[in-house]
Amino acid sequence: MKSESNLEKVLTDSTFAVTGELGPPRGTSAGVISEKAHYLKEKVDAVNITDNQTAVVRMSSLAASALLIREGLEPNYQMVCRDRNRIAMQSDILGAYALGIRNILCLSGDHQQFGDHPKSKKVFDIDSIQLIGMVKKMRDEGVFLSGEEIAEPPRMFIGAAANPFGDPLEFRVHRLAKKIAAGADFIQTQCIYNMDRFREWIKQAHDMGLTEKAYILAGVTPMKSVGMARYMKNNVPGMDVPESIITRLKGVDKKQQASEGIAICCEQIEEFKEMPGVAGVHVMAIEWEKRVPEITEKAGLLPRPEPS
């Protein structure tokens, strides 16, 4: 074991892993985290805590991750390259480990132009692949990026994201390979709706031996409505929503669309369980945490292994 992460233990035990996601509040309420955590408890192995997602200011992912630990859940601490330089990042990683955080997800981050401070200054001192390498260096070599020694290095289980749907399509699997070469232990993909494209991508990854080197968790986000599906298709960068999803949601009564969205999601999960190279699922129920118990139940993902 590279870390003391529960997620790592689940994955190394060859159990089909489940991760969830929790967006910190736009305010100071620890209660919001408790409430959302309550829905996820015993339903997932670890919970991603987003880092100012879509470049909108929220409670820090570090603080929210620490609060999640208090609730008895394991965080997957997200860190983006947009807002911090290498000094701040390494410092936060030390602090995160001291607070009991054992998983880190290394991301580029959405451009600040999308957020509530569009004219803020971007940092991007290092990029997401370099961040992966930095965390690995801190863990495995016990040194900072500068080469200076760390007293009690942080033993993080290192995650990265992959988007099988972004341009250029042919490069996507190579980008995955770079992330794994840099030191990613696990990968969580962008929300998958285009199953054909995903099957093609995971096959490429599998053929290249990448799925032996890192655990790949397939990302899903249940659609709440046909409106949400249209929004995701047209407004969210890097999202590939086929027309068939929209048609299927349109085909049911408005009141039934949420259940239909969940049904689609569960069918996907059933397929992922059988798909070579897929080690688990990442359920991103955006501001819909309360439906995670239902999704995990229906998809046959419960009970989760007891964290030791």
């Binding site: 390259c81 947009r82 580029s108 981050g109 959405d110 451009h111 132009q113 999308f114 971007k122 991007f124 990029d127 997401s128 692949i129 370099q130 994201a161 992959a162 988007n163 972004g166 341009d167 250029p168 490069f171 980008r175 770079k178 962008q190 960068p237 890097g238």
Partner: peptide
């Protein structure tokens, strides 16, 4: 837009940067 050296990020679609459809993705 992010000055990435190991790009592209997950954002580009139809060859455009996630920041704007009018900006080609550098990567």
């Amino acid at each position: 837009a992010k000055g990435l050296l190991n790009g592209p990020c997950g954002g580009p679609q139809n060859g455009s940067c996630e920041v704007s459809k009018d900006i080609p993705c550098a990567w």
